[in-house]
Amino acid sequence: MNLKEAFQAQNKIGELMEYITCYLSDEDNVMTVTEKHLRSKALAGQPDDTVDVSCKGEEGFAVERLITIWQELMEEKERLGQAIGKAKAGMRFNLDAAVEGNKSRRAFLSMLQDLANCKSSHELQKGEGCGYVFNNDGNQTAYRYDIDRIMTIDYDRNKVRAIVKELNRTADEVSIKIDEALLQTPVDYTPKFDLAGESRFILEEMMER
């Protein structure tokens, strides 16, 4: 398989392990609850009864078998991780650094694009100002006045746009390089399990092995 398929398999194994953890974390799935109706103690001659009132999930997975499957998946995850590590070590560039670098570029570009689109403006706020003067009688009197709110950008938008263009070009080039590496880099790994389909159905098949 190639590196892209290996990462997909890695994600699926992690998803299955999380599914098992959530299932076993639900007390209803790991306990059988019975109620004993002690009628004979209340009224002689009345039959006692035992009722199963468990609320297990519809999957009905056997707990111990599920724990074993989690351990098998953990081993598989480690084996796959080692195979991915060897594949990445043989690449001509650092894949992890390239991916993280592009995440940073894309995040910064989102902010820069907002700066590039920002414009200076002004807003006339009628009657928003308030001042005080003394009238002819010597009394303090309030008066209202307009405020012209002026907002001016503190940078050269053309320079920001140029940076946006350059960062986009670099990010696109790195993305292409990453995509090619994911498709062309072989990983020496053969899945032990069939990982196609929904987690529940995959686990049901594994339970039957």
Results as ranks from 00 to 15, higher is better:
Leu38Ser: 14
Ile67Thr: 07
Ala98Pro: 02
Thr68Glu: 01
Gln46Cys: 14
Glu72Asn: 05
Cys22Asp: 06
Asn135Ser: 02
Leu80Arg: 02
Leu109Ser: 06
Asp148Val: 10
Lys77His: 08
Glu72Val: 00
Asp52Ala: 03
Gln113Arg: 15
Lys41Gln: 11
Val33Ile: 10
Ala142Trp: 09
Gln113Asn: 14
Lys159Asp: 09
Ser110Lys: 10
Pro47Met: 08
Phe93Gln: 03
Gly90Pro: 03
Leu124Met: 04
Asp114Met: 09
Tyr145Trp: 05
Leu73Gln: 01
Glu59Thr: 00
Lys88Pro: 02
Lys165Met: 11
Ser25Tyr: 02
Glu75Arg: 14
Lys165Asp: 14
Gly127Ser: 06
Lys159Thr: 12
Asn94Asp: 12
Arg105Val: 06
Leu80Lys: 02
Ala142Arg: 14
Asn139Ala: 10
Arg144Asn: 10
Val133Asn: 07
Ala107Asp: 13
Thr68His: 07
Ala42Val: 12
Lys41Ala: 12
Arg106Pro: 06
Ser54Asn: 03
Phe108Ala: 15
Ala116Val: 09
Asp137Tyr: 09
Glu123Asp: 11
Asp28Val: 06
Gly57Asp: 07
Gly45Gln: 05
Cys55Ala: 14
Asn136Leu: 07
Leu109Pro: 08
Gly131Gln: 06
Val63Phe: 00
Ala107Ser: 14
Val160Cys: 01
Ser121Gln: 07
Thr32Tyr: 00
Ile67Lys: 10
Val164Lys: 03
Asp156Leu: 05
Gln113Ser: 13
Leu80Val: 01
Thr141Phe: 02
Ile84Asn: 08
Leu43Asp: 15
Ser54Ile: 02
His37Cys: 10
Asn168Ser: 13
Lys77Ala: 09
Ser120Met: 03
Asp49Pro: 00
Leu167Asp: 09
Lys119Gly: 05
Gln71Ser: 08
Arg92His: 13
Arg106Ala: 08
Lys159Glu: 12
Leu38Phe: 13
Lys41Ile: 07
Asp148Tyr: 12
Ala142Leu: 08
Met111Thr: 10
Thr34Cys: 04
Gln71Val: 06
Ala107Lys: 14
Asp52Pro: 01
Met31Trp: 12
Gly85Tyr: 09
Lys77Glu: 06
Arg79Trp: 05
Met74Asp: 15
Glu27Pro: 05
Gly57Pro: 02
Asp28Gln: 12
Gly60Trp: 01
Ala116Asn: 07
Ala83Ile: 01
Lys36Pro: 09
Leu80Gln: 03
Arg92Phe: 08
Lys36Met: 14
Ile69Val: 03
Ile153Thr: 07
Gly85Arg: 12
Glu35Asp: 13
Ala142Ser: 13
Lys119Ser: 12
Tyr155Gln: 04
Arg157Gly: 09
Ile150Pro: 04
Leu167Tyr: 10
Met31Thr: 15
Glu76Ser: 10
Gly127Ala: 06
Val33Ala: 03
Cys130Thr: 15
Ile84Ala: 08
Lys77Tyr: 04
Glu128Thr: 15
Cys130Ser: 12
Val164Ala: 06
Met31Lys: 15
